[in-house]
């Protein structure tokens, strides 16, 4: 796909690779927690109301809101 996708658009079980961030402020926090460009990321499941979501990255599970997930660009 030529389009740049982000983590919020992934489907449960889907795996991608972090390619970049669209929010400078948030990217710093995410990177500190090991969510770095080049890291594989897996969309695990979303909360019953669709938001927040749970992803696997850097060997552990991370939960974040959809709007936060939307700032993580992926390649797959």
């Amino acid at each position: 796909m030529g389009l740049v996708r982000n983590v919020a658009q992934m489907k449960p079980g889907e795996v991608g690779v972090v390619s970049g961030f669209t929010d400078d402020h948030l990217s710093v926090k995410l990177m500190e927690m090991g969510c770095l460009p080049g890291a594989p990321v897996r969309f695990n499941f979303s909360a019953p109301l669709g938001d927040p979501i749970c992803i696997s990255v850097a060997g552990y599970e991370l939960s974040l809101r959809l709007e936060e997930a939307a700032t993580i660009s992926i390649l797959n």
Binding site: M33, C54, Y60, E61, L62, S63, R65, E68
Partner: peptide, 11 residues
């Protein structure tokens, strides 16, 4: 002020 959730889901 932006509100964040980004939180580890411990095992």
């Amino acid at each position: 002020e932006r509100s964040y959730l980004v939180m580890e889901m411990p095992t």
